[in-house]
Structures are given as structure tokens and as C-alpha cells.
Simulated scan of single mutants.
Amino acid sequence: MQPLQPAPAVRRSGWMWVGAAAGLALAVSMFVNSGRSHAPAATSRPPTETFVVSGAVLLGDGVSFVRDDHGGCAGTGDQADIKDGAPVIITTGGSFAGGRLTDARALADGTCRFWFSVRGVPTRQDAYLLMVADLDARQYNEHDLKSALLALRAD
């Protein structure tokens, strides 16, 4: 009987590991692509048409915003999330498009105004929900969103 000795360490070549990684990548890509439709391009659905929603958000009472030293403004209290860069999101049944509030201005009439523009809003949807910052969403129809300028009062 021979004494038990540990088996010599087998050194695997670097090419074996490269081959294993390539095989794994191929298998994963085949799995991912197996769920995709293989219909010819001519029979696929046409891309959805989109439009741009542009408008302004206004804060109109003196306690809902503060002015800065440069002619700008930002919401306070319950409207504290209304500020430059705050998100503007429009959702439909299965999609959404987003933009940001920009160009905050304290106006001479005592209001604070922000502009926004949201690109890629899909056409021909039953209803659109528009949400600015964390305020409650408001429902609109396509005609209202395509008007010359949508004005939202947030206070």
C-alpha cells in the first residue's frame, strides 16, 4: 500500500478561463435574445409619436416663496420642493416623460415663476398625469397639454 499524498496542484492555463468566460457570455446573450420578437422590421409597430409640453409654474402668495439677491426665488413651507431643478413628470398608462423647473424669477407682480419643458410625451393617450416636485399630480387631456403655454398655480 502506498502512502496517501496530496494530489499535485493542477495549474489551469489563462486561455481556459478566457474560453469559459466567452462561453458564459455567449450563453447569457442567447438567453436574453431568445425572448425578443424576430418579426421583420416591416411588420413591427411604428414608433409612437410624441410632443413637447411647455409651461410655467407660479407661486403667488408672499408666504409660499422667498426671493434671493439675484432676482430668483424658491418655494417655502409646503412648496419648499418648488425650486430650480425640481422634476416635472408626465405619466400615461404605460410610459412617462420628464423635465425640470428652470429659470426661477421673482416677478414685479409679487409672484414667483418657473419655466419647464417636457419632451417625448406620447400622443393619443386617454389621460395624462402631470406632477411637479412632490406636489399632487393633476390630470390633463392632450388638447390642454398642447395649448400654447400651460400655466400651473402651485400655492
Rank of each mutant, 00 (worst) to 15 (best):
A97M: 08
F65P: 01
E142D: 06
A151Q: 13
T91W: 05
A133L: 01
A154G: 01
L26F: 06
R36P: 06
D144N: 14
D109H: 11
T92Q: 05
S37T: 12
Q125W: 02
R105P: 05
I90M: 09
G99Y: 14
V88E: 03
L130S: 04
A106R: 01
A97Q: 11
D103S: 12
G75L: 00
L130D: 04
G98Y: 14
W115K: 13
T92C: 05
L135Q: 14
R12E: 12
Q5Y: 05
V121W: 02
L24P: 03
P46D: 11
T91R: 08
D81W: 15
A20T: 15
L59G: 00
F51E: 12
H143F: 06
R11K: 13
P6G: 04
A104C: 03
M30E: 07
A108W: 10
I89Q: 08
P40D: 11
G23N: 01
T91V: 09
A22Y: 00
G110E: 02
S34W: 13
N33S: 15
D68E: 09
D78I: 13
R105D: 06
S13M: 14
T43A: 05
R153M: 06
N141G: 09
T111E: 05
L152P: 05
A154T: 00
G75I: 01
R119D: 03
Q5A: 10
A41I: 09
D61N: 09
Q5K: 11
S29A: 07
G75V: 00
W115M: 06
R113W: 06
A21V: 13
H143E: 12
L130G: 03
L26Y: 03
S147N: 13
S95K: 14
Q5W: 02
L107A: 13
T76N: 00
A42V: 12
F96T: 07
S29F: 13
L149F: 05
V57Q: 02
V88D: 03
T48K: 12
L149N: 03
V53G: 09
V53H: 10
P8L: 12
A7Q: 10
T102H: 06
K83W: 00
G93Q: 10
D134N: 00
L145W: 09
P122T: 10
M131P: 08
P47C: 07
T102A: 14
A151T: 12
W115Y: 07
T76K: 01
L150W: 03
A104L: 07
P47Y: 08
A9N: 10
D84W: 04
A20C: 15
G14P: 01
T48V: 13
V66Q: 12
F114P: 00
V132Q: 01
P3S: 03
P122Q: 13
V52L: 12
P40F: 08
F31I: 15
L130N: 04
